[in-house]
Amino acid sequence: MDAYYASPSSSFYDNAISRRFYEQKLRYLRFEPYPNDGLVTFGASGTAMCDRQLVLKNAQGVKPEKSDDLPFRGRQRRQGTAIVDYVQLDLVHMRKRLGADAKFTMAVRDNSEWDFEDAAQQRVIFEYPNPETGEFVSFAITAKPDGKFHYAPDGSRVIFEYKTKASGLRAMNGKIDFKGAQDDHIRQVTAEALVFGIDEALIVYESTQKPAWFDDAQSTSVTKGQKTWEDGQPRPDLRACYVKITDEMKAALLSDLARQAALVYEQRAGGDLPEVTAESTGKCGFCAFTDHCRKTLTADNLAKLQRIDSAMATSQMAGKAEHRNVIKYLAEVTASATE
């Protein structure tokens, strides 16, 4: 990708390739519901939901909440979508622009379509034992990756996922240097490996903040924490994380999804909602059922969270992210109760 974007020719698209790309996109501008087979269907990108969110999402009569958001968030979501679109268009030009130097190219399906997104989408049914009961549970996983690559040196296939980051160059690089790809993104490509039978993946991160056009390391008008160059080089705005998906990773994910699917089936049969846990409060930021979750919190669950808050406040967890998430959730429960 660096070789492509460094080339002057990257500023120009081949009309025939572009037309083929957009015609493929147009063919899939339609809505196709999942088969009405009653099975819980996990989207590959949604395999990191908390138990409660998953049950609410799959429970009849519970609709996702829609409310106004901060305007910049809407623009950020739109920006992320647009970036992935143009990156895919660039990727299908790689062979044209780089020739034999293009080691990774977008795979092509038997029908001559590029193997990405809706053209690649597949839904597979699994049966796996619930780790808590030992009983086999049926569920489905659906996946439509940002791409499947053909790797020229050995002819293998590689799953491709592209993620944008608005946290800034330093934050993105620091996080990747510390722990690599995000856990939920690794779960996503693991789910895709189960669907497609491809056990290698590249998760590529792009920072929407770009380095200054010229070296700013010596600029006195830029504070140290905001400098985007170091040692005469721009800080990377693109980072690729390689993931080898193992049988153990697949088994762990299937086991967890079987447990969650069982919770959904139990709730459909009249069971209770799963409890809110301290860990699950870290996933509330992108949940579409927050109001319903807070308003259906039981008194026992509330008391348990309050005890956890008190214990964290007097431990080494005080003030850390996990503790702040619990505090925030409890404050929102209180605010919801007074509305």
Rank of each mutant, 00 (worst) to 15 (best):
H185S: 03
L238D: 01
E266Y: 02
G271I: 08
L238R: 08
V137H: 07
E200T: 13
A191Q: 02
A193T: 06
A119W: 01
L263F: 05
V108H: 04
P64C: 12
L56P: 05
R307Y: 02
A299D: 14
D291A: 15
E117H: 02
A318Y: 09
T220G: 13
Y265F: 11
K63T: 13
A318M: 07
R109M: 14
E117W: 00
A59I: 08
P33F: 03
T105M: 13
K250Q: 11
Q88F: 04
G270D: 05
Y242E: 12
E127I: 09
Q76R: 12
Y205F: 07
L194G: 04
Q122A: 08
S207M: 01
G61W: 04
C287F: 00
G285Q: 11
P153T: 12
V276R: 08
V55N: 04
G174W: 03
Q267P: 00
L194A: 12
K304S: 12
H150D: 14
G232K: 10
L253R: 10
V124Y: 05
Q226V: 02
L302T: 06
A303L: 10
S207R: 00
S112K: 15
K227T: 03
D216K: 01
Q260L: 11
A337H: 14
D256Q: 13
A16P: 03
P64W: 14
D90W: 12
G134A: 07
K165E: 01
P64S: 10
D256Y: 15
A212C: 06
R187A: 05
M312T: 04
T281I: 07
A171V: 07
S67M: 10
D118F: 04
A166H: 00
W229I: 09
V55Q: 05
D90G: 01
L257G: 03
S310F: 00
G197V: 09
Q316Y: 01
M106P: 02
D184I: 02
A193H: 02
P236L: 00
F139N: 05
I17Q: 05
L91W: 13
N325V: 04
V222T: 14
S67Y: 14
A278C: 08
Q209N: 03
L302A: 07
A6T: 12
A181P: 01
E248G: 11
V92Y: 05
Q60P: 14
Q218W: 08
F286S: 09
E266Q: 13
R77L: 13
A288K: 11
G225T: 07
R187I: 01
A107Q: 12
F289C: 09
A240E: 12
T220I: 11
N58I: 02
E339P: 04
V276S: 10
A48W: 07
T338N: 13
S207Q: 02
L273H: 08
N58R: 03
A191W: 04
D118G: 12
T277I: 06
V92Q: 06
P234R: 10
G134M: 11
P274L: 15
Q218A: 14
A261W: 10
K250A: 04
K148M: 14
Q182P: 01
A191F: 03
D309F: 00
Y242N: 13
A119V: 10
L169M: 03
V264E: 05
